[in-house]
Amino acid sequence: MKVQLSTIAYARSGDKGDGSNVGIAAYTQEGYELLRRELTVERVKQHFAAIARGNVTRYEAPNLLALNFLLSDSLGGGGSESLKTDAQGKTHGIGLLRMELDVPSDLLPKLRGNG
């Protein structure tokens, strides 16, 4: 079944120079394994194709059940150079949570946790 990432994970984003970082954390260990497998650099780059013009870098923080993505050139210049509404990438986190994944329906309870 199709599941929005917001069902199984939470996120926060902010600016890093003229790019943004998007941290996403799973509610459960199983959810983290799914994120690690599914959220490839290519897939995230594709998801933000209209927003991030540069490279995407991925880091892992298994202790936080989290992945961290750096989206370069995603702020229209960043800081005081940008004309964009979201010049600091504040909404990129919930933007990633809109992504849909295919998840076996029997796995879903293990991904939701208590959250």
């Binding site: 939470y10 996120a11 926060r12 984003s13 902010g14 600016d15 890093k16 970082n21 941290g23 996403i24 954390a25 509610y27 880091y59 892992e60 923080a61 936080l64 059940l65 989290a66 961290n68 750096l70 959250g115």
Partner: peptide
Amino acid sequence: VRTVTSQLLYEMGDPK
């Protein structure tokens, strides 16, 4: 743990 984790992820680069 989730609200604190959220903030740990804010403006993060290489977590190591």
